[in-house]
């Protein structure tokens, strides 16, 4: 009896030692030499693996980051400047600070302003609906509200408002990774400068139709009248294909265009309430 136990212990011990040696040799033989800084860089990254930087996950970013000559060309939108500074420190460089960005939904066509003219009945996918038809309103550029942007957001930062049926970006949660920008088949969402204290101004419309049809389809459409272009003291606004666009790098947030816009298509975000005198419509849409 005892001899059986001893034999068993011996055999298993020998087997264990033998296998350990084999494992060690194999590990030596197939050792992968890797830059240790990759792990360090990866450690300071947010670990969201969102792909917002353009690399496959945070590991991919870290691998590219230690190799690149120009770290200025790389940016982690989720971690922002703090993360980039830390990551640059790891490899002994300094990162230039970049302006924080945010996803902006350039459509204000809630059912109140933009009448539904047909009813969609199919799979809930903006991409599919876009391939099928122009949309359930008279505006072929506007938001379909089927939530492709919501589905791709890894940060739970964009939701469809049940009343306006439009996506609303959560300022706290949005990391400007750009996933929704790519997902939107109508190209409505844009990454724009978040602005000082979150203050920003943008044209919340991408309708390229002429004024008449645009206005007919949606009360808050940009009708391409060009008043904002004329009033802008900083030449930040351009008008192309009946549509105004504000260059966020030139905009000085003077808000003159907001007052001038006859349809309320230009929105101002996070500004303190104005003194009375401005008409009601702009106020009602600027509170989101």
């Amino acid at each position: 009896m005892n001899s059986i136990i001893i034999t068993a212990i011996l055999v298993l011990s020998l087997l264990g030692v033998a296998l350990a040696v084999v494992l060690y040799l194999v590990a030596q033989r197939f050792k992968v030499i890797e830059d240790p800084r990759i792990d360090l860089v990866e450690a300071v990254l947010p670990g969201a693996n969102c792909g917002g930087c353009g690399y496959p996950g945070c590991r991919g970013f870290a691998e590219a980051f230690v190799k690149t000559d120009d770290i200025g060309s790389m940016f982690c939108p989720v971690g922002g400047n703090d993360t980039m500074a830390k990551a640059a420190e790891v490899i002994g460089q300094t990162a230039e600070a970049k302006d924080p960005m945010i996803a902006v939904v350039r459509c204000s066509g809630s059912p109140e302003y933009r009448k539904r003219v047909v009813e969609y009945d199919g799979a809930s996918s903006c991409k599919l609906a876009t391939a099928l038809y122009s949309g359930d309103t008279g505006c072929q550029y506007g938001c379909l509200g089927l939530g492709d942007c919501v589905a791709v957001c890894k940060f739970d930062a964009i939701h469809i408002d049940p009343v306006t049926l439009l996506p609303v970006v959560d300022e706290e949660k949005c990391t400007a990774c750009g996933a929704c920008v790519k997902a939107c088949p109508k190209f409505i969402i844009e990454l724009r400068k978040k602005g000082p204290k979150g203050k920003r101004i943008y044209v919340s419309c991408i309708n390229k139709d002429k004024g008449g049809p645009a206005r007919k389809a949606c009360q808050v459409a940009c009708i391409g009248c060009g008043k904002c272009v004329k009033v802008c003291p900083h030449e930040a606004i351009t008008l192309e294909n009946n549509l105004a666009y504000i260059d966020y790098n030139k905009c000085k947030l003077c808000r003159k265009c907001v007052e001038e816009c006859p349809t309320g298509a230009i929105l101002e975000i996070n500004f303190p309430p104005r003194k009375p005198k401005v008409e009601g419509q702009t106020e009602s849409v600027e509170n989101n």
Binding site: R116, V117, V118, E119, G122, L128, D136
Partner: peptide, 9 residues
């Protein structure tokens, strides 16, 4: 009076 329904085939 109702809106037209649009759906994929």
């Amino acid at each position: 009076d109702s809106k037209l329904v649009v759906s994929p085939s």
